[in-house]
Each structure stands twice: as C-alpha cells, then as structure tokens.
Design a protein around this nucleic acid. Structure first.
Length: 293
DNA sequence: CACCAGGACGGCG
DNA sequence: CGCCGTCATGGT
C-alpha cells in the first residue's frame, strides 16, 4: 500500500510465531509506545514518524501514520527496528540449553529486543537512574514535545525525539521545570552538548567494538556501567552485554546462587557473559521480565 | 506516609 | 579500589 503523498509503501505485514506487544514496547526498553489495553495494537513515534502496529497471530502489521515524512518503505523500517530478520527460534533454543533459564523461557516467547535510535536511548536511560518506568516515559515525552521537531499525523501534533543539537539548546532549569527530569537535568544538558560536539564519531560507531564503545559511553555524564550496557543493548544492537540492575541482580542470585552471599555487579556481569556469550543481552531481558512479574 | 524506583556520582577509608 | 550517603520526584 502506497499512501498519497508518499513514494514508499507505508504498511507491511510479517508472519511471527510469538509476540508480546506489552513486553516488547512497554516493558522498559522503549518509552514512547502506547499499548492499547487489549494488548493487540500500539502506537508510537519512532525515527520521526508515527507508527501503528497490530498483532493478530500470526500476523504482525506495521503501518506508518505520517506517510509524507516516510524516508523508506515501512517494510525496510520495520525489519530493522523490530529486528525481524533474527532467528528468535534459534535464540530461544540456544538459551534453553541452560537448565536454570529454561523454565523461564516459555512464558517469554513473545519477547523481542528493538533496534532503537541511540541518542534517544542515551537520554532515556540517563533518566532511568533511580527512577520509575512511568515517570521516565513522561519525561521522554515532555522532552520531545519541548525540543523535538513537530509534525502532524493522524489528526494530531506529534514530536520527533530531539537531536543532540536540539537538546543541547536546553537549559538545566527548563529540563527540570518543564520535563520533570529532577536532578538529572545537568547530566542531560552536558550529555547533549558532548554528543552534539562529537556526532561524526557516534554516527560511525557501527564498526566500533563493543568494549571500546562501552568505554566511550562511560565517559558521558550520567552514564555508569548499567546505563552504558542498556545503551549498547537497546541503542546499538549489542547483545554481548549484560546490564545489571536491581531486578536482574535478584533474578540471577535467585536462579543460580540461592544460598550464596550477594555477588558484586562486576562478578554478576562476568558470570553472565561467560555463561550466555553473544546472547547475554537477551538472557538479561528474560531474567528481568521473569523476576519483575 | 514511608519506601522505592531498570543508578550515578563524589567523598572517604 | 570498595563502600556509603545523596540526589528530585512521584507511584505504590
């Protein structure tokens, strides 16, 4: 389907065995999706466009609601963003070889990791420190409305997530006052400044090794080990990381070392990387979802 | 109304 | 290094 005003097809349909929109879109990896209470449709702004998705098994449909802005076909976008070329059957089969993880997998078959835009992920997870998912979502939306580029779609005004340069215009005062960022205001401002002044390096980071990218991220204000790993996982598609937060800490300890004294985050990370290797990031997401319910 | 939230940071021993 | 108090704000 090619909508008037668009030179690209604005809808695409895919066949999937499993999918859980709530977990995938509102589980704490992305913050701009609104999932309907039925759990079968959702809308969200991604990459400067408004999208609607539908899940009616086994069909996953993606529809662009701002066709005049679409820079590529909906199929190309969705294949990348929703990571549709990855063989999730094989991912689950591989992880099922772990006897401690195996019983947790079946309820999480609908879980997927998104390939989000890295700057939005940086900002979202700097906000995530000592914060609630609901409040993070609200701040992200307020940031977009105040500093992002507006566009109209589906009869309303939407806002692209601000670029580093756009967000660098912000003052700490306004971030705190209007975007509800709390004490993270200065982190965000300095983050936007730093990133906007080194954009070429970040844009070429696709070829950078995960370890090196991680050390770059750790130099950014408000980015510690956990946030850096989330940015790598959700924003740069690196699955060879294992973000350790309060939930995963409990989950790993409970599933693997129930009668041992608490491990340090460093030890937990090393354990997981050794055990799950290139699937560590996805294993983390399974553990996170399993313990959080 | 305490307590906690997908932690990071700075200061201290 | 590792440990500890602090940080702004609202959901539960």
């Amino acid at each position: 389907m090619t909508a008037p005003g668009s030179q690209f097809p604005t809808a695409a349909t895919f066949a999937l065995e499993h999918l859980d929109l709530r977990t995938m879109l509102a589980g704490g990896q992305a913050f701009r999706w609104q999932v309907a209470s039925c759990g079968t449709t959702a809308t969200g702004v991604v990459a400067g466009n408004l999208w609607e998705v539908r899940w009616s098994p086994p069909r996953f449909t993606v529809h662009c609601l701002s066709p005049q802005r679409l820079p590529e076909s909906a199929q190309v976008f969705a294949t990348w963003y929703f990571d549709l070329e990855r063989d999730y059957r094989q991912v689950f089969a591989q992880l099922a070889q772990d006897e401690h993880l195996q019983p947790l997998l079946q309820p999480k078959r609908g879980l997927r990791l998104l390939r989000q835009e890295w700057f939005e992920v940086m900002v979202s997870f700097v906000l995530s420190a000592n914060n609630h998912i609901a409040r993070i979502s609200r701040s992200v939306e307020l940031l977009a409305a105040r500093y992002g580029t507006p566009f109209s779609a589906a009869g309303k005004t939407c806002f692209a997530f601000p670029t580093p340069t756009q967000l660098a215009q912000a003052t700490a005062q306004d971030l705190r006052k209007y975007c509800n960022t709390g004490y993270r205001d200065r982190y965000l401002m300095d983050l936007a400044l730093q990133v906007s002044q080194s954009l070429p390096a970040w844009n070429q980071s696709a070829t950078t090794a995960t370890g090196e990218l991680r050390t770059w991220l750790l130099e950014l204000p408000g980015v510690g080990p956990k946030v850096a790993d989330c940015i790598l996982l959700f924003g740069f598609g690196r699955w060879d990381v294992f973000p350790v937060d309060t939930w995963v800490r409990k989950a790993v300890q409970l599933a693997y070392f129930p009668d041992q004294p608490p491990f340090s985050d460093q030890k937990l990370r090393a354990f997981a990387l050794e055990r799950f290797g290139p699937l560590a990031g996805f294993a983390q997401q399974v553990l996170f979802e399993a313990i959080r319910r």
